[in-house]
């Protein structure tokens, strides 16, 4: 009675999930107005450089340090229909694996030209693109010290609260993905692959930096919780 493609809330290999997951099953209810509506955003909220993390925190026009990359892809529903006007917020560590955050205990140096956040809105065909630097992997306390694979956090607003999603993009080929308990909290191995951005050289001439392709699928207005639930009911 679980969505195998969504993570288990309680996954003891990820230690902090043990005390931060409810003991009771959630109540499965029909959505009402609060789920099929949601805040909508438009491009008026954006500055020109909001989707360029290499430059959007720059002090004197200097670039952030690190391997420059772009990440792009399409946001669709489960039937492949493009979702326009989806607000995407991203945040990440710098090239050394350090976050610009007062609670990050790491002694790695901050990059004075790197804030680590950006935001952008999908176009009419569901497309988004942003530039950044490759984030570093970093250690964190779990079962002893473990390593987070390189990742970028993504937050998405579709057109209704039901579609609200926060997730992470990993990088194709990163050997740390396999042992990451956050990734492994997803029972369906195929669904884990949806979180891996694929190396994409298709725009090499145009962008002249390494590209990654990361498509995102937001759920629609149906419940998929029970195996015997009829679609659309």
């Amino acid at each position: 009675m679980i969505k195998k493609h969504q993570p288990l809330r309680r996954f003891p290999d990820y230690k902090s999930s043990i005390v931060r997951s409810p003991e009771n099953e959630p109540l499965l209810i029909n959505f009402s107005n609060s789920e099929i509506t949601g805040p909508l955003f438009n491009k008026n909220i954006l500055n020109e450089n909001d989707n360029n993390l290499i430059l959007n925190f720059s002090k004197n026009g200097e670039k952030a340090l690190g391997q420059e990359i772009f990440v792009h892809g399409f946001v669709t529903d489960e039937n492949g229909n493009p979702l326009k006007d989806v607000l995407i917020e991203v945040w990440q560590a710098n090239a050394g694996g350090k976050y610009r955050h007062q609670n990050d205990p790491s002694n790695i140096k901050l990059d004075e030209n790197f804030g680590g956040c950006g935001r952008f809105i999908t176009s009419s065909d569901g497309y988004y693109i942003f530039k950044t630097i490759q984030p570093g992997a970093y250690p964190y306390p779990n079962r002893g010290i473990e390593w987070r694979p390189k990742h970028i956090h993504f937050s998405l607003f579709g057109s209704m609260f039901l579609q609200r999603l926060i997730t992470q993009m990993y990088f194709e080929g990163d050997p740390l993905i396999k042992s990451c308990p956050m990734v492994n909290s997803i029972p369906d191995i195929n669904a884990r692959k949806l979180l891996v951005g694929k190396l994409d050289l298709s725009k090499t001439d145009e962008e002249k930096i390494l590209g990654y392709r990361f498509d995102i699928i937001l759920r629609g207005k149906h419940q998929t919780y029970f195996e015997n639930k009829i679609e659309g009911s």
Binding site: H5, E78, H101, H153, T167, I186, R192, L195
Partner: peptide, 15 residues
């Protein structure tokens, strides 16, 4: 299959 959720982590404030 919609894209799986992942934790927002302790540094969600940045984004």
């Amino acid at each position: 299959i919609d894209t799986p959720s992942q934790t927002a982590g302790p540094f969600l404030h940045i984004g």
